[in-house]
Design a protein around this nucleic acid. Structure first.
Lengths: 332, 332
DNA sequence: GTGAAAGCGCTAACAC
DNA sequence: GTGTTAGCGCTTTCAC
């Protein structure tokens, strides 16, 4: 090397600082000067290769092989990503969006050394995805899917769906609603939407309101179910949707059927994404803390990366509630 | 190796396919079987290290050291990222958000082998950022900053600001407006906003309308400039903002001053992000093709990565125009 | 306090 | 068609 030193000493320059001070300040300074002088850059690739870690985490999703958009639709993925990236950055980790993970063959990118760990989130888990996770050897944290679903093998971050639905029911009951329907996707519905549906039944009962088959609307492809329900004249004064997107669809469909929101019918969403503001009236919605969920999930993962003896945890975050303009008291 | 072969042969398994067929199909099959059997995974780290490339691109931004949010504000960054990621994925490249690039010391991450190339975008280029780019040895493509600004050293993707402003002026003139103001940030305004301001002057002249100092409103910190202008009673029937965020601020501020949009004053934004839909009335805006700009920039970069003799290019994309509800004919 | 040497897993060049 | 070898740039013993 230029400063008349060995490659060993370079290792100290960037890495060994606090560890063991095995180099005199004199030579250290000389090395630093020489390094700067010749524009020396540490080769991160070589270092990562040697150390078998990349300080990168990957984001997997369980909804098939189409990359979610950061900006279209409800901003769901964007909110999660904002949290994930902030959580990772705080700890010096990078977040990589990798075609192998999002698209073609996720299993090729898992355990190929590319990522120190993975975040997996799912709005509609498919069986093939579950199997891939079972085979996954990398550290991984689940978002939306409770840890128990994989026997506690992975940590998880979820929101309290039960309590969230409770807030929606409470709000509507407080406004005077008694006939409340629950809107879900129907077939191929997600695990979470099933939890929310059950929570709806239970929360209704808590208020002394029983539910029956007719209280569950299935959106259906192209909103056929929703349109059929609205076309026949709504039998309820309020609808709770499983997601903002479904609730927004419901508002639009209602308006097309000449039904006013919230005068004729109140509608509540779930997630409280900025999407709520793109419809008139603005959608009242249960607030799922997506940003925090992403941030905390990244934190849990990095905890496990830093110390592999860290026990897995199942974090459940409470939901909030954002009242906007799509709910009102029913007509007397 | 298990199949009684050498490490060399493993190299064929994934890489050498079409190159030279120097291995018999018999052994190839044997190797593949053994590999699968023992769960062999190619170590991408080692491969990248060896090949000195990572197939990853990094995204730098020139607005200082705060990471832009994907979901807050105008969704500007999210739209760009959606395009960048799609453009990169199409060619098998990953996109990494790296704290070193977004935050602390970008220069540490540049040329450390982490990225094959960089995308640099800027809404407000600072001198220190310019200098960093000058020093940058990695392939890099500029977004928003024309190639000429760096003597053609980097390729660039920009929108046609001139033509975009032309669309806004044309629209307002068609509606019957003659007294049109231009709203910009004022101090520390961006290079693009200066281009847009000049374009405004020129386009106004094209319609036989002259502009003077009073036609340029400077938003100012905390909207002080904007509020002062509106408080004194607007002297124009329409305002063109340099960005959606400023135009939305203008709508909100106008309403606070009891001025109706678009009845009393028409307002036009620039970018036409989904942010336009979050204000009432929805913002009419010049559509900057952010998604396409991101996608094309990624494509240009990867072209240069694939063949370093690729000449730099300066791509200019035309703007569109989205009429929404914040513009109308002036009161007679 | 400093230097020498080995080796991470891969690929490319070359010998067989 | 297949095996041998060297070496990418770094870190980590270990000897001096």
């Amino acid at each position: 090397m230029r400063a008349g030193v060995t490659p060993t000493v370079v290792s100290h320059v960037l890495h060994n600082k606090a560890n063991t001070v095995r180099v005199s300040e004199a030579t250290a300074a000389r090395v630093r000067a020489a390094a700067k002088d010749m524009g020396y850059r540490l080769n991160v690739l070589a270092r990562n290769f040697r150390g078998r870690q990349t300080f990168m985490i990957g984001v997997l999703h369980g909804a098939g092989f189409v990359r979610p958009s950061l900006t279209r639709g409800s901003l769901y993925f964007g909110l999660l990503m904002d949290g994930i990236v902030d959580g990772a950055f705080q700890r010096g980790y990078s977040v990589t969006l990798c075609p192998k993970l999002m698209g073609d063959q996720p299993e090729d990118a898992i355990s190929d050394g590319r990522f120190d760990g993975l975040l997996w989130y799912s709005t509609s888990p498919k069986e093939e995805n579950r199997q891939m996770l079972q085979r996954c050897a990398d550290p991984l944290v689940l978002i939306h899917t409770p840890s128990e679903e994989f026997g506690g093998r992975f940590s998880s971050v979820t929101c309290d769906n039960r309590q969230g639905i409770g807030l929606a029911v409470q709000h509507l009951v407080d406004l005077g609603h008694r006939k409340i329907a629950f809107l879900s996707q129907g077939t191929c519905s997600t695990a979470e939407s099933r939890v929310r549906l059950t929570a709806f039944q239970e929360e209704m009962e808590r208020h002394g309101l029983t539910t029956e088959g007719g209280d569950f609307i299935e959106c259906g492809h192209d909103n056929t179910g929703l349109n059929a329900y609205l076309g026949a004249g709504p039998r309820h004064t309020a609808i709770i949707g499983t997601s903002d997107e479904q609730a927004v669809s419901a508002i639009r469909a209602a308006q097309e059927h000449g039904i006013s929101v919230p005068e004729d019918i109140s509608i509540v969403g779930f997630d409280s994404t900025p999407y709520c503001l793109t419809v008139k009236p603005n959608l009242t919605s249960v607030a799922q803390p997506l940003y925090d969920m992403g941030r905390i999930a990244a934190g849990l993962l990095i905890d496990e990366l830093a110390d592999s003896s860290t026990p897995t945890r199942a974090v459940v975050l409470p939901c909030g509630f954002e009242r906007r303009d799509s709910t009102a008291s029913p007509r007397p």
